[in-house]
């Protein structure tokens, strides 16, 4: 069972690399934010799996909770920042 968690964690790391391509290439800043949001969700799952590999599940679940909350608040704040018209990120040509 332990090796299964290890293999799924490795596969998940490979899956995390896919949104990173969208973060690099994304033409608009919001594509990059979507990629970052996707990476954050997958990292949450990855931390849980790693917690099971290291057999210190209680500690890693607390880390995951804190990371989920901070990631969520962070993405909300960034979305609010980029939607204001005071900055010059405009796409209505």
């Amino acid at each position: 069972m332990d090796s299964f968690f290890l293999y799924s964690a490795v596969i998940l790391t490979a899956i995390i690399a896919v949104p990173a391509y969208r973060v690099l290439k994304g033409p608009t800043v919001f594509d990059r934010l979507v990629g970052t949001n996707a990476i954050a969700t997958k990292t949450i799952v990855l931390i849980c799996l790693i917690g099971y590999i290291f057999d210190r599940i209680g500690m890693f679940i607390d880390i995951t909770l804190a990371y989920a909350i901070l990631g969520f608040v962070g993405s909300l704040i960034i979305a609010k920042y980029f939607s204001s018209d005071k900055i010059n990120v405009r796409y209505d040509d």
């Binding site: 608009t28 919001f30 979507v34 949001n37 979305a79 018209d85 209505d92």
Partner: peptide, 20 residues
């Protein structure tokens, strides 16, 4: 609860920024 709200906030921000 958090993931859909984040995606909604992002889409709304993109609409406000004028992304068609």
């Amino acid at each position: 609860l958090a993931n859909p709200i984040g995606a909604h906030a992002l889409a709304r921000a993109a609409l406000n920024a004028g992304l068609k």
